[in-house]
Design a protein around this nucleic acid. Structure first.
Lengths: 200, 200, 200, 200
DNA sequence: AATGAATGAGGGTTCATTCAT
DNA sequence: AATGAATGAACCCTCATTCAT
């Protein structure tokens, strides 16, 4: 018997996470009540507090999931042995595609950051920074080998690029005319173009 | 006689706006209570509700102020008669500089958007779209005259650029080593570079 | 130059009373804010507090007006020299007609009684009682002369009748098919009928 | 085991209803705060909002209880097979007795009607109308068989009677010299008397 | 593993009233 | 005679969380 996700028999913990992700993305973390989450998940409050310490804990879990996935994928792309411009293009394209495929996570990530407890926030930011640095290494690698222009700090180019990616959540619509692949290609092209050395 | 924001003799309405802007940026809209706002402004709740219809109204006012300022500045830069690449560079640099100078407004803008009442939201988004379109016209103008590459939709390039700008609030720190001018120059350079036609 | 009631040049005090009467009848005393009253009257709060001590004072004035009017009219009818059954019938008819003509006053009277300050309330109830007693005297006069049945206390018959009258506000509609006169006649007939001595 | 109202061991929900009924009757719906209700019931606000959706919901429940009880009793009396004048007399007496026994409910009913949310109000008024119509049928039945005078609309006679009943709350005191039974008999007698055909 | 009654603090908002002008 | 800014208390309600079961 086939079943869609979020059906009644999906493990409660997982169902709570899915539902919370959707609601946090739609209404924001503060705008979503625990009552709404458990109602949408079809369980009671007690059940939620059995699996999670608090509402903050739910958010923390969602963050963790996203961070782990992104880091794994980036590493896979970075470690290849094709030319640097191809690896960077592929990694850039991939981060756009996965962001678009998990748009709810992305929305939560860049909107609810300040709601995290200070400690959690520190952990999240540290992991985020590692991710950023890994990506930046790709740029510096290209700069060192003369493939990318070096008159703009790698950090700046990376911030420039990720700003764009993180903001996908505010304008990209899955039903729109552009697929994630297409946006990804454009974004990766723009990144690579901006790093091309100035024509003499 | 110039005065810093939030001094005791600043008109109550203005003081409420300044304080609310700061707090919304720091803690988010939902994370800031009316009580905290009025306490920080040194007035009572009644005073706040004398000048504003609601907490939402406060947010609405802040939004309006930002929108008006940005639109005015963009128009000034767009209407010049220097070459298109210079006008776009100048406009791009300016939007970064003003964003950095009003970083609180920017943080609020891209984090609390979904908290607005549906009607207000529609108004804000419409005005936002107009701003976007005005900027895009600069890009298409350059594309038509062959100065900018035309194989990437202008819309995409603009979304790419503004994503970066809007995310300044998440990483830029006024006390950091880069001035708004410097970041603005880098960002504008990156934008222009990404629009350069492919080298043959 | 002809002028309708409640126009801008009607004395402020009078306009406040009219407006408050209408609003109190529509929404109840507690359900009407001072702000709504002054807005509807086209003046400011300060103006209202210039003419009236408080919101309670407004209600007190409305009560006073009704009480005075009803007492005057009753006296006029009671003092006639036609047969007692005719005088009672006329008085009963008149109280229905005037109640219907001032339905807002009536609604306020029997719905907002408990909102009055204890002292005012005592005064109002005393005056009300005097009115009641005056009416009752008509009944006892008829009982003494054998025209009305005496096996039911006059007080009871009067309470019975006035209960009906006071409840007109909950069901009578000026635009309905019955005029105040018609309802008055029916009510007066019913009162007289209920006082007729039992047939042997 | 019989228990008096408002004892500490009475279920919370029931205790809230009893207390609210008493307070609404004493001070009116708008004049009673939720804080006062929960304090009198010895619970916290949270507990109240666990059982009732809102303060309005509390009022709605009280209304529902009264309406159901009155309708049941009326049906019992109306369905008997004694002569119509006896059935009407018994029903009239009963409605007075039960009104007096639940005087708080009655006070609330005819004073707070306009405080109900429009939807609830519609429901309540419809049920009220059905009750009224059931009672009126008794009168028309008597008119058709010539027992009651037919020159006064049944509707009018019923409004006349119920006006009196509904106003019991404004003057009847349980500690007074008249029992509910006595008032009921007088009121029923007056009703029947007013319906007696005119003597020739 | 899960319930649901109950808590208590705090949420945004309304209000009658005051007072300097 | 009238303004309107400002007060401060009270309003209804929501919330994340706890706990006995």
């Amino acid at each position: 018997m086939a079943r869609t996700a979020s059906t009644i028999d999906e493990p409660v913990r997982q169902r709570l996470l899915s539902v919370a992700t959707r609601l946090f993305a739609e209404r924001g973390f503060e705008g979503t009540s625990v009552q709404e989450i458990v109602a949408a998940a079809g369980v009671t409050k007690g059940a939620m507090y059995h699996y999670f310490d608090s509402k903050d804990d739910l958010l923390r879990e969602i963050y963790g999931r996203v961070l782990r996935m992104q880091m794994e994928r980036l590493n896979r792309f970075a470690e290849g042995d094709s030319p640097i411009e191809e690896r960077l293009h592929a990694a850039a394209l991939d981060v756009v595609v996965t962001t678009v495929e998990n748009l709810d996570d992305s929305k939560i990530f860049f909107r609810s950051n300040h709601q995290l407890a200070p400690d959690t926030r520190k952990v999240v930011r540290a992991e985020r920074r590692r991710y950023h640095e890994r990506f930046r290494e790709l740029v510096t690698e290209g700069q060192r080998s003369g493939i990318f222009r070096a008159d703009i700090p790698a950090e700046m180019a990376v911030d420039f690029f990720f700003g764009s990616v993180h903001h996908l959540g505010t304008w990209y619509h899955p039903e729109g005319e552009l697929s994630g692949q297409e946006v990804g290609r454009y974004f990766a092209d723009l990144l690579l173009a901006s790093l091309r050395p100035e024509a003499k």
